[in-house]
């Protein structure tokens, strides 16, 4: 722990004391931790007390459930009687369960389309929100407002919106001579509908992009303009590279959210994941096993596999980020 040398007991000759402490610090090997004095310990205790609600929350609601879930994944457990140890049987079952493969492929399909599309939509919204016009506050409110609609409410809106008989979506298609499309009745269509629905929640990522945009130093743009760079060149040579740290954050959270897609699919398909398991996402199948079939051990194994997949993806993204994330310019 690095502590300023000026922190210490009160002495009558502070200058002499400071010099002596400085000599001792110079003589001590740099890697050995320093013993804390009583003031430092008091400050540490105070600090820990201040963050104790967070510590308790993490330990009780995250750490303990994660460890408990990992241990349950090696058992057969209904939630009632004592868990029975089954070794890696749940993992073997998960690998051979055709619905796990189906749910995983549905989730990957969703993530591959929804995450990049979400980033593009969010970045576009952020650029629109960043325009230097008088009524920009109104535009920001309008663009962000759909993100405030809860997922379950949005799902019901989409069910009506996409209805092939009386939905607005098909009526607009008809206006342009298009035939009715029945997205919710098709295994691929229902996934696309849920992907489209997710884009209405892009406002949160857009706000983060907006903060990133506001942090790009204006002087860089001015220099580029002097050099004759147009808006498109400025975007690809300045804005986008300097937004990559924000892009990385939104990418990680987007992938994490995509792996856990649940609410929209659950409501749109009435909890079934049909038609033809087309919207049976991984979390839905996990939920069914845990609370519908009372197979908490198997559901825990599915949760551990999801955790490992998410961790692997996050590590992969971080590794790749060394190639595309630019930390060169600090906010100006």
């Amino acid at each position: 722990m690095s502590v300023p040398d000026t922190v210490g007991p009160q002495v009558t000759e502070p200058g002499v004391q400071r010099a002596a402490a400085s000599d001792r610090a110079a003589a001590r090997p740099p890697d050995l931790p320093r013993r804390m004095n009583s003031g430092q310990r008091r400050k540490l205790r105070t600090g820990l007390l201040f963050i104790s609600p967070w510590i308790i929350g993490v330990v009780v609601f995250i750490l303990y459930p994660v460890i408990y879930s990992i241990s349950l994944s090696f058992t057969r457990y209904s939630g009632m009687e004592a868990p029975t140890w089954v070794g890696i049987q749940n993992y073997v079952t998960a690998v051979t369960d055709p619905l796990v493969a189906k749910a995983a492929s549905n989730t990957i399909f969703y993530a591959i389309i929804a995450v990049p599309l979400g980033l593009i939509v969010a970045l576009s919204l952020a650029i629109a929100m960043n325009q230097n016009v008088r009524e920009v506050a109104l535009y920001r409110t309008i663009f962000y407002a759909p993100s405030l609609i809860p997922a379950f409410a949005m799902s019901f809106i989409f069910i009506v919106f996409l209805n092939p008989q009386f939905g607005v979506f098909n009526q607009v298609l008809n206006l342009f001579g298009g035939a009715n499309v029945n997205l919710l009745g098709d295994p691929t269509g229902v996934k696309i509908a849920i992907i489209l629905m997710a884009q209405l929640g892009a406002g949160n990522a857009a706000l983060i992009f907006l903060a990133g945009l506001r942090n790009v130093p204006r002087t860089v743009y001015e220099a580029a303009r002097v050099d004759g760079a147009g808006p498109i060149r400025q975007f690809f040579s300045i804005t986008f590279p300097l937004l990559t740290p924000v892009l990385l954050f939104n990418l990680i959270t987007g992938v994490s959210g995509a792996l856990q897609v649940f609410t929209e699919a659950f409501i749109v398909t009435n909890g079934t994941g049909d038609p033809d398991a087309g919207a049976l996402f991984y979390m839905m199948y996990l939920y069914k096993n845990a609370f519908g079939f009372a197979e908490l051990g198997y559901a825990s194994a599915l949760a551990v596999l999801l955790f490992l997949a998410g961790l692997a993806l996050a590590l992969l993204i971080f590794w790749l980020s060394r190639r595309f994330v630019n930390y060169d310019v600090e906010a100006g």
């Binding site: 008989q165 009715n180 029945n182 919710l184 009745g185 098709d186 398909t269 038609p275």
Partner: peptide
């Protein structure tokens, strides 16, 4: 059949808008 129900009686359709009543 499935396309029919998805069209005229999608999941969570209001009770008054089921295929039978329409």
């Amino acid at each position: 059949v499935d396309a029919f129900y998805a069209t005229y009686q999608p999941p969570n359709a209001p009770p008054s808008r089921i295929a039978l009543f329409s």
